[in-house]
Every structure is written in structure tokens, then in C-alpha cells.
Amino acid sequence: MTNLNFVPDAPNGLGHTASSSYLPLSDNPLAARSTSPGITDKQERVLTATNVRKGYSIGGEKRWVLDGVDFHVDAGECVFLSGPSGSGKSTLLSIIGCLLESDEGEIHLAGQRADQLNVAERTKLRRNNIGFVFQRFQLIRGLSAKDNVAVPLSLQGHSLQEARLMATEILARVGLEMHRDQLPTQMSPGQCQRVALARAVVSSPRLLLADEPTAALDRQSGYEVMVLLRELLQATNSATVVVTHDPRISEFADRICEIENGRLR
């Protein structure tokens, strides 16, 4: 039913029970993997951003938030974008997520030249290729966990029944099977972020973008969410970009890109 290629017996796969995700940092197999320098196999390049510039006019003077950024991410790779506030992290995330247009530069996403698309075409590209995890979860309050996760599938044209089945399946994988009919207001922040994670990956996006996914969570919940994120990414092989300030989760990155004053260091 689902596009996710789950491997129940894989050591880091989604076949883990929920309790295995709550292992202490030193005991969790993902922790060891996350310290590796990055993926070594030749992977498909999902996103390439070349010489991206974005600026705003303030008092008639152009101020560049992004100033000639080159960036790429491959399938299965998890890249962290870090940097101080106002450095341009979120702007870059918006541009590569096709939420915002760049002033200059090229964006190639999933084999398409994204920067030359009109609004409708960008929406379609986003719907079919990108999953989002937001800092504040951004779940729809009136919908149950299951229906929240089903939203991207429905937007892609799946029937409600089919989307709910797939959503139920992935909620079980993230340990929320018993909470599938609960509203966001009835769940803890950690549970909400896991629902948001499930929503982001349920359609197996080529690119997953996470904006400060642990910022609204306590240390333990944040850690669990990142473990879960890595597990899900292994199953989906999505290219992932995580914007974060949180140094405690840097071990989950395959590569960390520092951005400062609109430039990658």
C-alpha cells in the first residue's frame, strides 16, 4: 500500500518497536551511524542550488539575505543547515522548498529546473516531491493524527480511504498507533512532532525539509524525534535538509553546512 520500503529486520529500520527508539544515546545503533562522516556510496543528486541570491529592499537599499549560495543534497543524505539567527537558513530552506522565489541562481529539484516554474508548477513540484517538518508541527487542529498524516496523500490524489490506511500504517511505525484518532490538542508536543514526521514522509518525498524540528521539544523528545527521523529517512531514502540551532542533535547529520551573512562557510 505504502511507498515506504520498510525492512522489519534491519537494525536501523522502521521494524524497530517504539521502545527501541527510546534507547539511551550511547546504546542506540543510530547514534554510532550518525557520527559517520556521511554517505559514501554514489547517490542520486536530488537537489542542486547554484549561486542563489535573495535580497530585500530596505529604505531603497538592497540587502542580500542569501548571497551566492551553492548547495546540494543527495538521496539518503541528511544535511544540517546551521548558523546564527538572520543568517539566511530559513530563507534558503524556503527557496529550495519552492515556497519562495530566488532573485538569482538556479534550483534543480528532482530533475526539474525549479526556479523557472510558475506558482502552480512550483506547487505541483512541492506536492509531489517535498515533505515538510515544521518547528511548531503545524498540524491541523480539527483533524485526527491519522487524517493529518493523510493530507499529503490526498493532495496527491489518493482516495480518503486509501490515504487513511497508509496513514494508519505509518503512525504504527512511529509508535502512535494507539493515538491515531486523537486530535493534536490531545497529544504531547513530542507526539505531535512524530505525527508531523509521519506526515512529512508518508508520501516518500524525494526531499524532506525540517525547520528546527526539535526546537519546541525537550531534550528527550527532541532526541527521539531525530532518531525517528533517521529511521524514516533510511526507509524512504529521501534527501533531507534540517535547519537547526540545536548542537545536541548534530550527531544525526551526515553533513553540516554553516551559513553566515547569507553565505555558506
Partner: peptide
Amino acid sequence: DRISEFATLKALGSK
């Protein structure tokens, strides 16, 4: 009251 939810729907690809 739910403006951010509409923004989310748009971000997820709602036309």
C-alpha cells in the same frame, strides 16, 4: 484563527 493551517496546506501543495 487558522491562518497558519492554510499556510501549511499551501506549503504541502494545496492549489
